[in-house]
Amino acid sequence: MDQIQHKYVTVQGLKLHVADIGTGPNVVVFLHGFPEIWYSWRHQMIAVAKAGFRAIAPDCRGYGLSDPPPQPEKTSSYDLINDLLGILDALAIPKVFLIGKDFGARPAYLFALLHPEKVLGVVTMGVPYRPPQTRSPYDKCLPEGFYINRWREPGRAEADFGRLDAKTVVRNVYILFSRSELPIAAENQEIMDMVDSSTPLPPWFTEEDLEAYGKLYEKSGFQTALQMPYRASTDDLGTSESIVKVPVLFIMGNKDYTLKFPGIEDYINSGKLKEFVPDLEIVFLPEGTHFVQEQSPELVNELILTFLRKYI
């Protein structure tokens, strides 16, 4: 960890924090999800650097050590794509592998759609590719207490989170999201109330890890994090393209709660996903939860390195 360098790149008027380790022409960029930050890729960054790659993990705008945008409520997927493009330009990196987890999968796929000449391959975890024109059906198919429905409601999550310190919010989300059931609160219950204070952290997530997350969320807060991904609209990206033409590895935990989203498991297993991602490999991890890269780092690292070596 002490070999990871930390730098700032100014993109679209924001100072974006980038963790960086390794050298050489083959570069891997890691894109985090929620409630994650660059730190969630610590195991993978060290592994790919030891294997001869350069590993870069930015904090998404408004997350961790990156500046928040002046109007967080206007943050969109398109901003993340332009941030990534700006980071690559600033660091003079012509071509990369992209690895995205949770909402970080979306900009990875969209970047590959819009800038295929800059992408050697894509690895994602927890969230399958959906064409940019696709609208989310979850708010209509799932109860009012479903966590995304709650967090889309302006002010509700802010009030819920605001009762607790940042570290406790992250702790509760990690516990909730590492279960195999969808987080759905009762009518008179808030999402944070779904976790008892005596519930232990997952065994692969230490108090030291939680401390690292807590400190960074104390700095950034959750305003941008609630906008991206939960309230951001589906943007018009200016392209009708929907086929991802670069090689893709999709890693999914069999115990990931997102498999309980309506239609997702069938979409992955029926062959429909492969219609949009022709050069696709899918790997299911039997014990994997939503945080496979932190839960089973050695296994995930091996899958990633095998994929990377295939396409350099």
Rank of each mutant, 00 (worst) to 15 (best):
K245Q: 12
A212E: 14
P200L: 09
S240N: 12
R171N: 07
I184R: 11
G238N: 04
R171S: 06
E208R: 01
M252D: 09
G253C: 00
M228S: 06
E207T: 13
A186E: 15
G214W: 03
T239K: 13
E187M: 10
M192H: 10
I175G: 13
A225T: 03
G214L: 06
D193F: 05
V244N: 12
A185G: 00
V170D: 01
V173M: 14
T258A: 12
V173I: 15
P247A: 00
L259V: 02
Y257Q: 09
R231A: 07
L216F: 10
P229I: 00
N172L: 04
L176S: 05
L226P: 11
P202C: 06
V195M: 12
V248S: 03
T239G: 05
E187T: 14
Y174F: 10
D256A: 01
Y213I: 02
P229M: 00
V244I: 11
R171M: 04
Y230L: 08
S197R: 15
E207C: 04
N188L: 08
T234L: 03
V195Y: 12
N172S: 08
D235G: 00
S240W: 03
K255D: 01
M192Y: 10
E241S: 12
S242H: 12
D236L: 02
E211A: 13
W204S: 05
T234S: 00
L249A: 09
F177E: 00
M252Q: 15
P247H: 01
Y174L: 03
R231S: 09
D236M: 02
P202K: 04
L182V: 03
T239Y: 13
R179D: 11
D193R: 10
N188R: 13
Y257N: 09
E241L: 08
R171E: 06
Y174I: 01
G253M: 04
A232C: 11
S242W: 08
P247C: 03
K215V: 10
Q227G: 07
E218G: 12
P229L: 00
N254Y: 05
A186S: 14
D236S: 03
L176K: 05
G238Y: 05
E218S: 14
M252P: 12
N254I: 02
A212S: 12
N188Q: 14
D235M: 02
E211R: 08
E211K: 09
G253E: 04
Y230R: 04
S240I: 08
P229E: 01
D196T: 11
D256S: 00
W204M: 04
T239W: 15
N254M: 09
